[in-house]
Amino acid sequence: MNSMSPLILGLSVLLCVTLIGAALVAIRATRLPIAILAAGLVSLIASILFLVLAAPDVAMTEAAIGSGLTTFLFFFVLARVRGAEKDGDELAGDELAGVKHDGVGK
């Protein structure tokens, strides 16, 4: 591992590009569940990047906490917010209207 092998270099270029692509999806997606899942994907790719950067401790933490628990916290809140919208209140925006017709797991 003295000189960086082309395989590692290619892998990390791929990881960085996917990372930024997933972050853009998380910001731009029209539906909120997609945005939340894309943010979880960003964390997952970041944890692989940590592994490439020789930080296995951080990689484990990010995979378990960043992409696991955080995503589910978001989904719990999303489910509670959706449940309250059946009362006929006006919605927060078009994205929540989209949420109402598709399942959370989509």
Partner: peptide, 29 residues
């Protein structure tokens, strides 16, 4: 396992605690 072996292998209390909480999350889901 992860938090008992924290001083030998990657991992430790925080990671192990998060994994334990994921087990609880599975029950909850």
């Amino acid at each position: 396992y992860v938090f008992v072996n924290g001083h030998l292998t990657p991992g430790g209390g925080f990671q192990g605690g998060a994994i334990v909480a994921s087990g609880m999350l599975l029950l909850l889901l």
